[in-house]
Computed example of a mutant assay.
Amino acid sequence: MAVQNSAKKTKKSAASGNSFINFFIDLKAETKRITWASKEKVKKATATVLIFCLIYIVIVGLLDVGFKNLFSVIFK
């Protein structure tokens, strides 16, 4: 059984100036629909990301120093 799509899409040429202008009009309309996070939530999320980045940096740094020392002992 074939499903028919009743909504027909109109095709606009990419070269027309109206499609370029309509893109920015649609972009403005979409940005108005965005629900932004509160300032407090953004601060919490930023702090969380920074803490995890610092933990990751410390772990990778310790592994780097450990493997460097291990290789220097092995290839002495």
Rank of each mutant, 00 (worst) to 15 (best):
M1S: 14
V42P: 00
F23P: 01
I51N: 07
K11C: 12
V60T: 15
G66N: 05
K32R: 08
F24K: 10
L70Y: 15
I57R: 06
V58K: 11
T35A: 14
K12S: 11
N5S: 15
I55T: 14
I25P: 07
S19R: 14
N5T: 15
S38F: 06
K44S: 11
V58C: 04
S6V: 13
A45W: 04
D26E: 02
K39G: 00
F24H: 14
K12Y: 05
A15I: 11
R33G: 01
V73E: 12
G17P: 01
K44Y: 01
W36Y: 15
T46P: 01
L62A: 06
K39Q: 00
A37T: 01
V58Q: 09
T48R: 00
S19A: 15
I59E: 07
V73C: 10
I25V: 02
S72N: 07
L27M: 07
T31S: 06
A14E: 10
L27E: 04
I51Q: 02
F75I: 03
I59D: 11
Q4T: 12
E40V: 02
E40L: 06
L54K: 05
S38Y: 00
I25L: 04
K39N: 00
M1C: 06
G66P: 02
L63Q: 13
L50E: 13
S16E: 02
N18H: 14
F71A: 03
V60I: 12
S6C: 13
S6I: 13
F67C: 05
Y56M: 01
S16Q: 12
F52W: 10
Q4M: 09
L62N: 10
I21N: 06
G17R: 06
V60S: 14
G17V: 08
N5H: 08
K76V: 00
I55W: 09
F71W: 07
K12V: 15
K28T: 10
M1G: 04
K32V: 06
